[in-house]
Design a protein around this nucleic acid. Structure first.
Lengths: 206, 206
DNA sequence: TGAATAGTGTCTTTGAGACAATATCAT
DNA sequence: ATGATATTGTCTCAAAGACACTATTCA
């Protein structure tokens, strides 16, 4: 990479960070993964500064692996938070990212899963980043069945509906939900019985 | 602003630029404002590096005023383009922005309005930025009447429809369009006659 | 059999899309 | 009157929402 070519050395540059809101569903609620450096710091999202030659998505992935022990992640860009005084360490822009992962892959003693409806105070503008991420994920779950692959296949219609109810934060009518999702599903023909009642058919994503 | 505090001085930093796609409607087509430094350079979007303490939106506004003579602009953030080799001068990220302005306010000998359907080759990834901007603007014009205030009030339903047809790049049915837009409009009660035919009612945005 | 759960039938409402009819003006 | 344009009526179709019904299983 050619550094210090004409036009680039004249400007002071900002530090560019990435911060990622990792969302999941745990105990029937949409949760965000938070961590804190020490026991008394406020909660924060995992983030890091971008290294030279690194893509933003790779920086976000690296931060999650190193700081939260999370792998197999594919962060997506949300928004740049650029208030000059947002970070008291200096001029730092944060490119917010988000991703959605199964809660099982977030098991670590370094992190805590917190329902997005009960957020504690977060550093800087991290609460705003969570709000952006929640909007993006809820939008995706309105239109298609489990776009983030939180469920293991195959799954029942009831399981899929419970997941969507957790993500959206509201109850869904079983019949309306079924008809909205069927076009994006493939029936396996297999059945799954759980306790009483008629067994449910098992589906995969189409 | 506190510079060189712990943790910030250790990392080489990228140059952060803003590039803005200014869209408008001219001669019945959605156009983007392009400029070039010299006569033989390829076409480009107006952009600049972000100055210390400056917000991205202010940098974009400054670039448009200085390089294209455009004022009264309110750029909105689209996406960060961060390929490490996207700019041959070095490590440069570009935060893409867009805005929509009346063609009359873009009159300048430094710029050219080009229909987005007939883009010439652009520098770097500027064609991709234009594509992002076109998607955003078309999405906004699908749902509500002239959200970017391109039309002077009051206007006729026909004028509004011609504008939306230009933005979306396809013909719209007069009656369907009218019914889709009426909820976002306020009828003035005044009429406007243009040549033959029944005079059209004049509307304002609701 | 009865309770519980899964799935379907169907009615209503809403809106898009499309075609046809009516209204109002210039010539 | 005739042509041109504006506006409304109405038909069809599809999808969401909601309620009621049928189907299948366990206790």
């Amino acid at each position: 990479m050619a550094q210090h070519v004409h036009g680039l050395e004249d400007y002071p540059r900002p530090s560019v960070a990435v911060d990622t809101a990792v969302l999941t569903v745990a105990e029937g609620a949409l949760c965000v993964m938070l961590l804190r450096e020490t026991g008394k710091d406020p909660w924060r999202l995992p983030g890091t500064f971008v290294h030279p030659g690194e893509r933003l998505v790779d920086a976000a992935t690296r931060a999650l692996r190193e700081k939260a022990g999370v792998s197999s992640i594919h962060p997506r860009q949300l928004h740049v938070f650029d208030a000059p005084d947002r970070d008291d360490r200096g001029w730092v822009m944060s490119v917010a990212h988000y991703d959605v992962l199964p809660a099982a892959s977030l098991a670590s003693d370094r992190v805590r899963l917190v329902p997005v409806a009960e957020l504690p105070p977060l550093v800087y503008d991290h609460a705003e980043i969570v709000a952006f991420a929640v909007d993006a994920v809820r939008g995706a779950y309105r239109g298609s069945p489990d776009p983030s692959h939180l469920l293991e296949e195959p799954f029942t219609m009831r399981g899929l509906r419970r997941l969507h109810e957790a993500v959206l934060g509201r109850r869904l009518l079983p019949d309306t939900f079924r008809r909205a999702m069927l076009s994006g599903l493939a029936a396996t023909g297999e059945l799954f019985a759980e306790g009483r009642g008629r067994p449910a058919e098992l589906y995969r994503r189409a």
